[in-house]
């Protein structure tokens, strides 16, 4: 049993990794990773003032959508 279990382990690890990459992809498509992208951009640039917190960022995110609406297709 244990031998079979260890034999299966890499497969499970593979499935888990596959699942994770699907989840990461979906997050990207949904735009759920916008804050991480912002932080990464911020880190690269290195302004003097602190970056927006997650809460501030998402407020700003939707408020900018208010000011700059994008169409959805039919």
């Amino acid at each position: 049993m244990s031998a079979a279990g260890t034999a299966r382990l890499p497969m499970f690890a593979g499935v888990a990794a596959g699942f994770k990459s699907v989840a990461r992809y979906l997050r990207g498509v949904l735009g759920a990773d916008a804050y991480e992208n912002y932080l990464e951009h911020y880190r690269r640039l290195g302004h003097q003032h602190a970056p927006m917190t997650e809460r501030e960022f998402w407020r700003d995110h939707t408020d900018r959508q208010d000011a700059n609406p994008q169409g959805r297709c039919c």
């Binding site: 498509v29 735009g31 990464e40 951009h41 700003d60 900018r64």
Partner: peptide
């Protein structure tokens, strides 16, 4: 600018763009 202009992985952007163009039409 980390907000509107963000380099996005091509496969993610494909899904994103597709979701924006495909609707009920």
């Amino acid at each position: 600018d980390g907000k509107d202009y963000v380099r996005t992985d091509r496969n993610v952007l494909f899904g994103h763009h597709f979701a924006a163009i495909a609707g009920a039409g």
